Amino acid sequence: MSVTWGNEPPSVGEYGELRRLAGLSRRAPNAAAKGLEGSLHVVTARERARLVGMGRVVGDGGCFAQIVDIAVDPEFRRQGIGTGILERLIAWAEAELPASCDLSLIADPGSFELYKRFGFEIRTGMVRHPG
């Protein structure tokens, strides 16, 4: 397998399909388009032209930024793609965001160990879910 790394946002269709394959919640196409457009930074992993992984940094770019949408197609898991995405997102954040910018993420319990390896700490908080 030969993965090609990129920084162009995926199409709305690719984004929706990868989220579905990765078991993430569905986003309305208009919301997905707006979200992708508003990204501070995007990392994609493609096998040939097929999107097999991605992640984004969103936020105000000064005080707060958040890593979101880390998703890997189940066929391509356990091949270092998730780690590669996270490495690239963090490298970008360290180079481009102010040192005082808070970089956070929300993780599923099964992925805590990956994020802890990159210096993230588990903290409690509250999130408002639409509905």
Rank of each mutant, 00 (worst) to 15 (best):
residue 34 K to R: 14
residue 65 A to M: 04
residue 114 L to H: 02
residue 11 S to A: 07
residue 76 F to M: 07
residue 123 R to S: 13
residue 114 L to N: 03
residue 117 R to G: 01
residue 33 A to S: 13
residue 24 L to R: 02
residue 12 V to W: 02
residue 85 I to F: 04
residue 31 A to Y: 00
residue 36 L to K: 08
residue 79 Q to H: 06
residue 60 D to W: 03
residue 40 L to D: 06
residue 123 R to N: 12
residue 97 L to T: 08
residue 107 A to F: 04
residue 19 R to L: 15
residue 86 L to H: 04
residue 98 P to S: 11
residue 10 P to S: 09
residue 117 R to H: 14
residue 102 D to F: 01
residue 33 A to K: 11
residue 131 G to V: 10
residue 98 P to R: 09
residue 107 A to L: 07
residue 76 F to R: 14
residue 79 Q to M: 06
residue 24 L to P: 13
residue 40 L to T: 02
residue 108 D to R: 09
residue 48 R to K: 10
residue 16 G to A: 09
residue 2 S to G: 00
residue 52 V to Y: 01
residue 72 V to W: 00
residue 115 Y to S: 01
residue 50 R to F: 00
residue 95 A to C: 05
residue 126 M to R: 07
residue 51 L to F: 03
residue 118 F to D: 08
residue 75 E to M: 08
residue 73 D to G: 14
residue 5 W to T: 00
residue 53 G to L: 07
residue 99 A to T: 15
residue 28 A to E: 15
residue 130 P to D: 05
residue 26 R to H: 12
residue 101 C to L: 11
residue 94 E to F: 02
residue 102 D to C: 10
residue 64 F to Y: 13
residue 69 D to K: 05
residue 66 Q to D: 02
residue 71 A to R: 03
residue 113 E to A: 11
residue 95 A to H: 13
residue 100 S to D: 14
residue 116 K to W: 01
residue 125 G to M: 04
residue 76 F to D: 10
residue 52 V to F: 02
residue 74 P to C: 12
residue 100 S to G: 13
residue 7 N to V: 04
residue 45 A to Y: 14
residue 39 S to P: 00
residue 77 R to Y: 04
residue 40 L to F: 01
residue 1 M to H: 05
residue 60 D to V: 07
residue 23 G to T: 10
residue 12 V to S: 11
residue 101 C to H: 08
residue 36 L to R: 06
residue 108 D to A: 10
residue 61 G to V: 09
residue 31 A to L: 08
residue 33 A to T: 07
residue 50 R to W: 00
residue 31 A to T: 12
residue 40 L to E: 06
residue 35 G to A: 15
residue 66 Q to L: 02
residue 85 I to G: 02
residue 43 V to P: 00
residue 124 T to G: 13
residue 87 E to I: 04
residue 20 R to L: 14
residue 97 L to C: 08
residue 99 A to K: 15
residue 115 Y to N: 04
residue 3 V to H: 06
residue 72 V to P: 03
residue 87 E to K: 11
residue 129 H to S: 01
residue 97 L to S: 11
residue 46 R to N: 11
residue 69 D to I: 03
residue 91 A to S: 10
residue 86 L to D: 03
residue 130 P to L: 09
residue 93 A to Y: 09
residue 24 L to Y: 03
residue 95 A to F: 05
residue 64 F to K: 05
residue 19 R to I: 13
residue 68 V to H: 04
residue 25 S to A: 08
residue 117 R to P: 05
residue 101 C to G: 14
